[in-house]
């Protein structure tokens, strides 16, 4: 949906790193006029109780995403490669540390 009014702000997706050692995780979106405002609004909206130590704000219209309705063909290459999983390999139970 495009902005319909001159005062309407673009949509940003917000990612928060909960604490050091963790990935940034998507937490939601917000509206902001520019990047700096997006970060400030993200701080006020998503980290009022110390939920984060770092924030990414990304314009929603710049995100490339896979389409769910091509789920099967798109993810098929990983479906038939069972040998990528450790459980594919038969190892006798008495082999230690494996």
């Amino acid at each position: 949906m495009s902005a319909t009014n001159k005062g309407d702000w673009p949509l940003y997706e917000v990612f928060v790193r909960g604490k050091r050692g963790l990935n940034h995780v998507h937490v939601g979106s917000l509206r902001a006029a520019d990047d700096e405002m997006a970060l400030r609004h993200a701080r006020d909206l998503y980290t009022r109780r110390k939920e984060g130590v770092s924030i990414w704000a990304v314009r929603s219209d710049t995100i490339a995403a896979s389409a769910p309705d091509e789920k099967d063909p798109f993810f098929a290459p990983s479906g038939d490669k069972v040998y990528r999983h450790p459980t594919f390999y038969d190892i006798p139970d008495d082999v230690p540390h494996m």
């Binding site: 949906m1 902005a3 319909t4 309407d8 917000l30 509206r31 009022r48």
Partner: peptide, 24 residues
């Protein structure tokens, strides 16, 4: 009261994922 504003914005954000527009 600031939390209530935040709750409203979380929810507008959820509505926008369905194609709704917050300003609308």
């Amino acid at each position: 009261v600031q939390d209530e504003a935040g709750h409203g914005l979380y929810l507008y954000s959820a509505a926008e994922t369905l194609g709704a527009d917050r300003a609308d």
